[in-house]
Simulated scan of single mutants.
Amino acid sequence: MTLKIGWIGCGIHASQMLLPQLVRHDVQLTALCDIDGNRLAAAGRQFGVTHLTNDAQELIRRTDIDAVGMAVGPDQHLMFGKMALERGLPVFMEKPPSGSAAGARELLAASEKAGKPLLVGFMKRYSAGNKIASNILRSGRFGDVHGLTGYYMTAPGYFAGNVDYTGFFLHHCVHHMDLVSFLVSPVTKLTARKVEKGRGILLFHVHFDFECGAIGTIAMGTGQSRGAPVERIEIMGDHQRLEVDNVIEVRWNRNPPFKIDDPAAALADGEDTLSWKPNFTAAANEDPKGYHSLLADVVPALAGAQTSAPTIRDGVVAMERLEKLRHELAL
């Protein structure tokens, strides 16, 4: 049965990233909500929706929807998420689920009380390169993870002259507060150090101890151009290494023999490096960022199926880590 969804928030991110991928699945966008009339009308034309409102409560009260989706601000996620759950509707929301860990815990309690799922948009788990890496790790062919290193950067322009790092942490850093455990294991300890070279120009290293015994470091900051690749993950094992660059290039370095003096040198299965990158000249929309793959798990979960979609419980863990990180950095 086609899932009927009411959607709150029709900004650029929703209209260009989330909703185009959502409607590729077995859903019907029944109603849209946004406080900006021009954005709302444009989204209505784009997705063929005629039920338009600037009142989120009105949308949530509708009797012709099966679920609510939203991509608005952290405070609105908390407010509207609780409203929808109290009405008995399952919810999908973009990250962060709230502006605080306490708010995320409120949403978890509301989800458990309603007996309805609240799914969170941690699409980094589904980004093409990260998905390939996680499948290799879970296959048993990689062995134990010894360590994780990487970086995840953005630019000073993110702040538009107002140096408040809250948005940077909530909308950017929160991704890797979730991703590191998805790739490795639960975090047992988190510490961090920073350097701040100017207004809004911040670099910090966050260090993780993992339950499995691995260690990790992610460099994050605001001093790199958004026009250049700003994301990399490297996972170290015993004579093996997984590298994911820019979420679209994967290398699995294994344990090849030296080849220079071998007249029979070739590329051997099980020894030499495997690599992958998407073919962007193909007509197919691969969506390497991961929204389509995320929503492939979210849609059936909203209908009651058990899937791997990230839940508000994952959101609570990520938000608690994020607050620990900010405390470590005194930001």
Rank of each mutant, 00 (worst) to 15 (best):
M236K: 03
M1P: 09
H292Y: 13
T311C: 08
A114N: 08
G270D: 09
R141F: 06
D164C: 11
I136M: 04
L32I: 02
T154W: 08
G161N: 13
K324W: 02
K124N: 09
T307P: 10
V49H: 01
I218W: 03
G140C: 04
E58C: 10
N279T: 08
A114R: 09
F122N: 07
A330F: 07
I8T: 05
I215R: 12
V174D: 06
N38P: 01
D26F: 10
H77F: 06
D164V: 11
K4F: 03
G73F: 13
L137Y: 03
F80V: 07
R125P: 02
G290K: 05
P156C: 09
D144R: 14
K194H: 12
Y158D: 06
W276A: 14
L40F: 00
A214F: 07
H175S: 03
D36R: 04
C33L: 01
L40N: 00
V247Y: 14
D64R: 13
L329M: 07
G198R: 12
L322W: 01
L203H: 09
Y165K: 14
R138E: 11
R105T: 11
V174R: 01
H13R: 09
V174I: 15
S127H: 04
G48Q: 04
S15A: 08
F92S: 06
M236E: 13
G9E: 01
